[in-house]
Design a protein around this nucleic acid. Sequence first.
DNA 1: GATAGTTGATTAAGACTTTTACTAGTTTGG
DNA 2: CCAAACTAGTAAAAGTCTTAATCAACTATC
Lengths: 180, 180
Amino acid sequence: MTAGGHGGADELDFWSFIRLAQHRLAEEHGFGDRLATELLLTLNRASGIVTYDLEAAVHRPRGRSWSGFRLLFVVWLAGPLEAKKAAELTGMSRAAVSGLAKTLVGQGLLDRTPGERDGRSVLLSLTERGRREMLETFQAQHRREQEWAGVLTEAEQRILIMLLDKLITNRDQFDVRGRH
Amino acid sequence: MTAGGHGGADELDFWSFIRLAQHRLAEEHGFGDRLATELLLTLNRASGIVTYDLEAAVHRPRGRSWSGFRLLFVVWLAGPLEAKKAAELTGMSRAAVSGLAKTLVGQGLLDRTPGERDGRSVLLSLTERGRREMLETFQAQHRREQEWAGVLTEAEQRILIMLLDKLITNRDQFDVRGRH
DNA sequence: GATAGTTGATTAAGACTTTTACTAGTTTGG
DNA sequence: CCAAACTAGTAAAAGTCTTAATCAACTATC
């Protein structure tokens, strides 16, 4: 068999690639347990596909980015928030929140007011227009979320949430790297 | 209770935020089924946390980006690949692969040769150095993957993979947006 | 109370991704 | 056989993310 010749790569899709990868990792490189690899590959792929779809179907048509939505979403539901807290809840860096907030303030969706108890901090809150837009946008996203989740039964959804929770909750057992 | 005053946001973390969000979506905005929202929020959060950790712990210290690794990974295991195929398998756009390949060729990890059967296409393959580096890098990533997956039992890992598979496989039931 | 250290926000530089547009090679159908 | 349609790859512009550095404000300590 020539180098790279395993029947031609043309029929490969994501799942047959995973099988091929498993095979070569085991046979040619001697990796034993490959379940973890498959799990994380699948997790990232699933998240990427869903996120891309939501962004393309819901947010870009409205002139909004995925990150912009995430920031507006936490401010919408968790009330006025310090920028630092918003960064924690969205999983972004503080710098990303700072830049994004600048854009969203300019678009009239977000208000930025100085914090009271700490002169350095900044409180983010939605403008009236921001509130209106979030309600409409989230309705659209919610419909699409339900199409996605709908391929699983309710029980399956609950199990999936539980397993994902467990995956990221028990991580204190080793030294995980988080954003600054 | 004043605007935004629901006990102070200071104790909020990702999980208490989800509970708060659920509550406000139901009580103040009348959203009924919020399981789908929780599922996708948790999915994206889990993927983001794990990916960030792998990038920070394994790839950045080696001067490599997450995307660079993804591209090298598929080329490593699926042999010489047309750029288009590499884009499909990694889930990137063709343009992203093109740009990334340019960088990686410059770093001496990737070879780019003209395709034989199609004069437009480009075949990507690893250089000898690329192969050596991938073996070392993947060993490191594999160890860390196992730390992550290790908080779940093997049965749980298999169920999680199965549910994620189902989530993204059955999506033909509606009009999903994918990359170009 | 002055000072050292810490923390919040911001900016700057660089990497990466996206969409759009373009070039060039290939296929198809009259 | 040739023109129209299509496809692969690339480049450009705009946007987002990252880390590192900077500034300002708070806190603790001498």
